[in-house]
Write a protein that binds this DNA or RNA. Structure first.
Length: 290
DNA sequence: CACTTGACCTGTCCGC
DNA sequence: TGCGGACAGGTCAAGT
């Protein structure tokens, strides 16, 4: 469930905490969560110092001074929570954290640093993963070779957005928004929110949406993504930031998880939940006509 | 080529 | 209270 704004929130938080820290130990209990050769871990991760943290689409890339990088995908329920030794085990345990003392039963990987602090990769459903790769091979991963442009990049325009969507003219527009090879970073929440904002039914074929409406969709999408980053991401049971805290975007969501409630634009119309592109999809039947 | 379904997993919630 | 099943929704692979 972490999408672009949630992953970006985690990147910003960890960027202030991790660079300069040296890894002294790594523990993991589920091979699919950490599918790396033990010899690589000992040679290129243990003893290495973190240099920087980047994001591409919904993926985090943690640079190391060993010419290797950690590539992390949180998928549905992944969390990256940083704890100093004092906070995790001391008397001043934060009561506003949704996550208790770590590790817990969803902890899959633990990175221990020289000063006693730790980074915990938790993942209830075990879909996420952490891969250790030579930095020069990261961009050669299939995912990175195929992934589409970043919607918030300075160089990306509304015209570019329309051109990208028109790669799939006959597909339903929600399926295209969710396709990471067309545009990077959009998931179920922000697809529903931006389609409502632009008054487009999610099953409409891309070619049947007027170009002006597609440009409106881009404007709304960027606005929503930026607002959510500002609010620290979506509020959800599974999503927490680097401190184990929730985001505060929920009050700004207009349709997502609001089935049965009135549409903000049409007080007499109830938001309904349908299926589109195989996902639960929230729409206002008055705003978003098929 | 477009689209759907299943797989990967665990936890929660709903109806009986 | 327990139990089966639907559901959550990111990505890839396989099937229609």
């Amino acid at each position: 469930m972490p999408e672009l704004p949630e992953v970006e929130t985690i990147r910003i938080g960890l960027s202030a905490l991790l660079p300069g820290r040296r890894v002294i130990d790594v523990a993991h209990d589920w091979p699919k969560s950490f599918p790396n050769a033990e010899s690589d871990v000992q040679r290129f991760l243990v003893g290495a110092t973190i240099t920087d943290i980047r994001r591409r689409a919904k993926v985090l890339i943690v640079g190391l001074d060993s010419k290797y990088s950690l590539v992390i995908h949180l998928k549905m329920t992944g969390q990256l929570v940083f704890r100093s030794a004092a906070v995790n085990f001391g008397a001043g345990h934060p009561t506003d954290s949704l996550v208790g003392e770590l590790p817990d039963k969803s902890t899959r990987v633990i990175f221990a640093f020289e000063d006693g602090s730790k980074l915990f990769f938790n993942d209830q459903r075990k879909f996420g993963w952490v891969r250790l790769l030579p930095t020069i091979e990261v961009e050669e991963l299939d995912f990175f070779k195929k992934v589409g442009p970043e919607p918030l990049a300075d160089t990306f325009t509304a015209d570019d957005f329309v051109t990208r969507l028109m790669c799939r003219p006959k597909s339903g527009i929600k399926a295209v928004l969710l396709d990471q090879t067309i545009i990077a970073g959009i998931g179920n929440i922000y697809a529903d929110e931006s389609l409502w904002a632009a008054k487009i039914h999610p099953l409409t074929r891309v070619m049947d949406v007027p170009k002006t409406k597609l440009k409106t969709l881009y404007t709304e999408l960027c606005h929503i993504l930026r607002l959510s980053i500002e609010k620290g991401g979506f509020t959800d049971r599974n999503y927490v930031n680097h401190e184990g805290k929730r985001g505060s975007y929920l009050p700004f969501a207009q349709v997502f998880r609001r089935e049965g409630q009135p549409c903000p634009r049409h007080p007499n119309t109830t938001i309904i939940k349908i299926r589109a592109a195989g996902r639960g999809t929230h729409i206002c039947p008055a705003c978003q006509q098929y």
